[in-house]
Design a protein around this nucleic acid. Structure first.
Lengths: 133, 133
DNA sequence: GTCCGTGCAAAAGCTTTGCAGCCTT
DNA sequence: AAGGCTGCAAAGCTTTTGCACGGAC
């Protein structure tokens, strides 16, 4: 939670695997999905460990937590600033490789008393697959 | 949940009051805050009723649910499309009366296979009050 | 040896739901 | 009278946490 608090992290197979899995997918998985996948390799894995390691990875700056309308959190290893596309029919979430509009921050700062540092932009629509159906 | 399902709604003092309260504030309250306020007038009010009425009001299109990083939901009666400003220090959420950039949708549609209908844009920074401190 | 990582289970926090009775239409 | 609305309490779901043990350094 607190990035300034310096902690020494040790190596952990579970943590390595979680990061590897997150990096190998673009599906923005939930903690439970990661748990189910890694449980196949380490059957005694517990969900609490997944959550704890995700928290550590976020502290390390290697993973980001993303919230959508859903009741559960999703995680991604793409820590570069980027926007998301969400399909309103199938719920799929895609990374959107569009340049970041930094001037939105400037405009928002000028129009308000806020000093705006960054923004979050999400697009909602219908993906290619769902359009076909 | 389903806006197409036609239901006949009856009058309810609690529901009226919830809507009135939501319309009279710009603080994007939580269900619990509404509950605490209205409980002062109707002491036997239950939190379940607040949630049920919020769901009904959302179905009616009079209220919107908004999610942020927090673990709980917030609600607002401003159903016009608008952006939000969030103060990273005090957590305050402000409506941002900036014109909607409809062309962002057009650009996103052109750059991807998605048909984009709308977008959600949130600005994060430091509000005037917190800058003073 | 120190102290972080882990499994297990319990707890926490917010939201939903079942039920029986009340109230609106 | 029909069926939505309500209080109460229990359940649901995701996430966090306490504890004791095992493992990394």
């Amino acid at each position: 939670m607190c990035k300034t608090e310096q902690k020494k992290f040790r190596q952990s197979k579970h943590r390595d695997r979680i990061l590897e899995l997150l990096r190998s997918t673009d599906t923005h998985p939930t903690a439970d999905w990661l748990y189910e996948q890694i449980k196949k390799e380490f059957p005694q894995l517990s969900l609490g460990t997944v959550y704890r390691n995700l928290t550590v990875l976020i502290d390390m700056g290697l993973v980001k937590k993303i919230h959508f309308g859903s009741t559960f959190d999703r995680f991604e290893a793409n820590t570069e600033p980027h926007y998301h596309l969400i399909c309103e029919l199938c719920g799929k979430i895609l990374d959107f490789e569009m340049p970041i509009y930094h001037d939105l921050n400037t405009q928002a700062t000028q129009l308000t008393g806020f000093t705006v540092h960054h923004h979050k932009l999400e697009f909602f629509g219908v993906c290619e697959d769902c359009k076909i159906k």
